[in-house]
Lab assay of single mutants.
Amino acid sequence: KRPMNAFMVWSKIERRKIMEQSPDMHNAEISKRLGKRWKMLKDSEKIPFIREAERLRLKHMADYPDYK
């Protein structure tokens, strides 16, 4: 399994928030909203998620050195 990228790290957190607020919303609609919101974020707002994704990538490389 591949490590999460910055969007996936961010969307995992945000998806929970949306599901708590709107439990009946369909997954496809949540995904569309998340995509739009991610694109609207400033680069500076994405930095913590980019850093976390990089940390996960490095950990994945250490844990699975033969992964292609």
Rank of each mutant, 00 (worst) to 15 (best):
M8F: 10
Q21C: 07
I30K: 00
D24M: 03
A6T: 02
R2G: 13
M19Q: 09
D24H: 08
A62F: 09
M19H: 09
P23E: 05
S22M: 07
K17G: 02
K12C: 10
L34T: 02
M61W: 09
K17I: 06
P65A: 11
I18L: 09
P3C: 05
I18E: 07
Q21T: 10
E52Y: 04
K68L: 03
G35L: 14
N27S: 13
I30W: 03
K42Q: 06
S11F: 05
A53S: 05
K59I: 11
K68C: 15
M4V: 12
S31W: 07
K12P: 02
L41G: 03
A62G: 13
Q21N: 10
H60Y: 12
A6W: 00
M8R: 08
W10N: 04
R57K: 14
S31G: 08
K42D: 08
D66M: 00
N27P: 15
L58M: 10
R15Q: 10
R15G: 06
E29S: 03
P23A: 06
E54L: 04
I50M: 13
L41C: 01
M8N: 10
V9T: 02
R15W: 05
R2T: 15
M4H: 06
H60R: 09
A53H: 02
K36H: 12
R33N: 12
R57T: 12
D43P: 13
R57I: 06
M19E: 11
H26Y: 06
W10I: 00
A28C: 08
R2A: 09
R37G: 13
P23D: 02
M61C: 14
W38C: 03
Q21L: 07
E29T: 02
D43I: 08
M61R: 13
E14K: 00
P3D: 15
M8V: 10
A28R: 08
R15K: 10
H26P: 15
M8E: 15
D24L: 05
S22E: 10
M8G: 11
S44D: 14
P48I: 06
V9I: 13
K1I: 12
E20C: 03
E52C: 05
R55W: 08
V9D: 03
V9N: 02
R55S: 10
N27C: 11
R37D: 08
L41V: 05
M61P: 12
M61F: 07
I18M: 07
K32G: 08
E52M: 06
W38P: 00
R33M: 14
Y67C: 12
M61I: 13
E52S: 01
K1G: 14
K39L: 08
V9F: 03
P3L: 10
K46W: 00
L41P: 00
I50K: 09
S44N: 07
I18S: 02
M25Q: 01
I18G: 02
R15T: 11
P23I: 01
S44I: 12
V9P: 00
A6S: 04
E14W: 02
L56P: 00
Q21Y: 04
M25I: 08
R15H: 05
I30V: 13
S11K: 06
R37T: 15
A53V: 02
L58V: 11
A28Y: 07
M40D: 14
R57D: 10
L34F: 03
L58S: 12
D24V: 03
R55K: 09
W10L: 01
P3G: 12
V9M: 04
K17S: 05
A62L: 10
R55N: 11
K42P: 13
R55H: 09
K1D: 15
R2D: 14
R57N: 15
S31I: 11
Y67Q: 15
P65S: 15
I47H: 05
K46V: 03
M19T: 11
Q21G: 08
D24N: 10
M61S: 13
F49D: 03
E29W: 01
K39I: 10
R33E: 15
E14F: 03
N27Y: 09
K46E: 02
W10K: 03
K32A: 12
I18C: 02
L34A: 00
R57M: 11
L34Y: 01
N5C: 07
A6L: 03
M19G: 05
I47G: 08
K39F: 05
F49W: 08
M8W: 05
D24R: 05
N5D: 14
E54G: 02
A6N: 00
E29I: 01
M4C: 01
S31T: 13
P23N: 01
F7V: 00
S31P: 01
K39Y: 03
M19Y: 08
K42I: 05
E54M: 01
K46D: 02
M40G: 10
P3A: 04
S44E: 15
K36G: 09
R51L: 10
R51S: 05
R51K: 12
V9C: 05
M25A: 10
L34M: 04
D66Y: 07
A53I: 02
Y67R: 10
Y67W: 14
D43C: 05
M61Y: 11
N5S: 14
K39V: 06
G35D: 15
I50S: 05
M19I: 11
I13D: 09
R37F: 02
R16I: 12
I50H: 12
R55Y: 06
E45C: 04
M40F: 06
R16T: 09
S44P: 02
S22A: 11
K32Q: 11
A6D: 02
I13V: 10
I47L: 14
F49V: 03
I13A: 10
N5K: 00
K12W: 01
R37E: 15
E20L: 08
D66E: 15
K39D: 12
R33H: 12
K46T: 03
I30L: 09
